[in-house]
């Protein structure tokens, strides 16, 4: 395993008013590592991910990405976000733009590419997620699985070196889950650093370098897929796995 630390989270605390959601998370993610975060609903998984690109501002603690503390108000968060792709549960494709425009918007607006370069890149990314024929399609004409693959392509257009996935397949019909997971596996194989919140335990077993179990705003246990799925120690993890694996 590569030893360079890409993301280092120290004692991250996040409160919404009186609601203490994250209670002191510590985590290191290495270059090219795939970390899968599991845990019951409401345990703070989304909040954790959203703190990593400052969609939520941490209450306290530090988040260092490539030597930059993003919790520091002086940090230009827009620059940091260009290097962190995010994929949402509900896709959030821009409904006023076509498929290709969705992918090209940020590179053009942020002067990362000319129109021609962005268009060429959009074609390549659509090919990568298996949707080259949808270049001119409207967002509304796509199925959920197709929308999510476009959303992944959109995030990749900024050439990020970390990708955050927040339950990317939870809103999909079962027959579409496979296509999205396939794209994600391919990304992992290419060496993308990924933090993935998911309930797809098959994906976690197959792709994850490390699995992190979050419950009640804390990391209760983490380890290799084998350690987490075959030899869970924490009783809460055991009961969580009982529930999700025996549906």
């Amino acid at each position: 395993m590569n030893t360079k630390i890409k993301v280092k989270v120290s004692n991250l605390i996040k409160n919404f008013g009186d609601n203490k959601v994250l209670k002191g998370i510590n985590m290191e993610v290495h270059d090219n590592e795939v970390v899968v975060v599991i845990g019951p609903s409401g345990s703070g998984k989304s909040t954790f991910l959203r703190n990593l690109n400052r969609l939520e501002a941490p209450t306290s603690g530090s988040i260092v990405i490539d030597d930059t503390d993003i919790a520091d108000p002086k940090t230009d968060i827009n620059k940091i976000r260009e290097n962190i792709g995010m994929v949402f549960q509900h896709f959030n494709l821009f409904s006023n733009l076509s498929v290709s425009e969705n992918i090209m918007l940020a590179p053009i607006e942020l002067k990362k590419a000319t129109k021609e370069e962005a268009a060429k890149q959009a074609k390549e990314l659509l090919a990568q997620v298996g949707l080259e024929s949808k270049y001119n399609a409207t967002v509304q004409s796509l199925s959920g699985g197709q929308q999510q693959r476009v959303a992944i392509a959109r995030a990749l257009a900024m050439n990020p070196d970390v990708m955050l996935f927040d339950e990317p397949t939870s809103a999909l019909d079962p027959e579409m889950v496979g296509d999205v997971l396939a794209v994600m596996k391919q990304l992992a194989k290419q060496g993308m650093t990924m933090i993935v919140v998911t309930h797809e335990m098959g994906f976690a077993k197959e792709v994850a370098d490390r699995v992190v179990f979050v419950e009640d705003g804390n990391i209760q246990e983490q380890g290799t897929p084998d350690e987490i799925f075959n030899h869970p120690k924490d009783p809460r993890l055991q009961s969580f796995l009982d529930k999700v694996l025996n549906v």
């Binding site: 821009f94 918007l105 942020l110 959109r154 900024m158």
Partner: peptide, 12 residues
């Protein structure tokens, strides 16, 4: 979600 997606790409 539209605003969040746009901001997550680094758009001001």
């Amino acid at each position: 979600g539209q605003m969040e997606a746009a901001r997550s790409l680094g758009l001001p």
